[in-house]
Design a protein around this nucleic acid. Structure first.
Lengths: 166, 166
DNA sequence: ATTGAAATTAGCGATTG
DNA sequence: CAATCGCTAATTTCAAT
């Protein structure tokens, strides 16, 4: 959580960022073509984005349904403070939990869970409930996902900037 | 939504899938080294995973906080059926909505929203509410994200398979 | 297995503060 | 003058046929 010295990204940095959010496997040469920069210059900029923690990694996007995970659910979870604080570590042992966020408010955490069937989902929920007696859950079945992990863009950033008036 | 003919992925396919979920920028040669396969063989397997819809893309993972988006929130949204059905298209015009899932149950949808400040979050919520009078929201502030987009792994798949007994 | 392209390193030149 | 940035060139590695 330390401050970086370079909070300003120019138009080409944003172009690279957007291109890599769209397709993380683009090579430096091709990126350079899009952005009108040589491959080494692109590599340099991308490295700076990585080192500044703006880009934290590159991931293949996998469709769970195609692997047999027909169920996608969001699980609202309530529990006592002591357990809450450890929920991140605890759910590491439950691989069907793909996301885990701790929340302010009534719900302590919100999980995204995938399962191969309702029966499977049931066993995952049982496993979560058995972690501690203070835990209770509310399960919301995802019917469809119109948007997942949309890109952060420069135009979006600009609009927010002008909103904040500075 | 059509069925593919090849529901069986072997150990090497899984290794490739896991490697690419960890680092989508690995080249075929390096993947081949990890998996003990030639580069062309790797390329073919990856292409098959893509064509089967198991891998749907490759994305750079961006940390919104590093771009000034200090607020991360989950927004539960309720609305009438007619609007609900269109919610995916509607929130396309609200770039701060990074995820949008339609749900079964009381809440019609669950959004993930990023914002640069509480004021900014307020304007985003106002924008959502102005879409239609029937819309109401509940906003949950994310305090931390212990896990985001965890990988789907072969050991996880195996365990689920044995659970389902077939 | 071969051929063309891409990544990487190093060194140089231009621009800026 | 120092620092930053991007380019070319040359070697090695990779991708694709």
């Amino acid at each position: 959580m330390t401050y970086e010295s370079k909070p300003d990204w120019d138009a080409k940095d944003w172009q690279l960022l957007e291109a890599l959010q769209r397709d993380a496997r683009l090579g430096y040469a091709e990126l350079g073509r899009k952005v009108r920069l040589s491959a080494p210059a692109v590599a340099e900029r991308v490295k700076r984005l990585e080192e500044a923690g703006v880009i934290t990694g590159y991931r293949a996007v996998v469709e769970p349904k195609r692997l047999g995970y027909g169920i996608d659910a969001m699980v609202r979870l309530r529990c006592d403070g002591g357990i809450c604080a450890r929920i991140g570590k605890i759910v590491e042992n439950v691989p069907e939990v793909l996301d885990c966020r701790r929340l302010a408010g009534e719900d302590s955490a919100l999980l995204r869970v995938v399962a191969m069937s309702i029966t499977h989902l049931e066993t995952v929920l049982d496993r979560l409930l058995k972690i501690h007696p203070s835990i209770s859950t509310t399960t919301l079945i995802v019917l469809q996902t119109p948007h997942a992990n949309r890109s952060i863009t420069r135009t979006m950033w600009d609009a927010a900037r002008t909103l904040s008036q500075d």
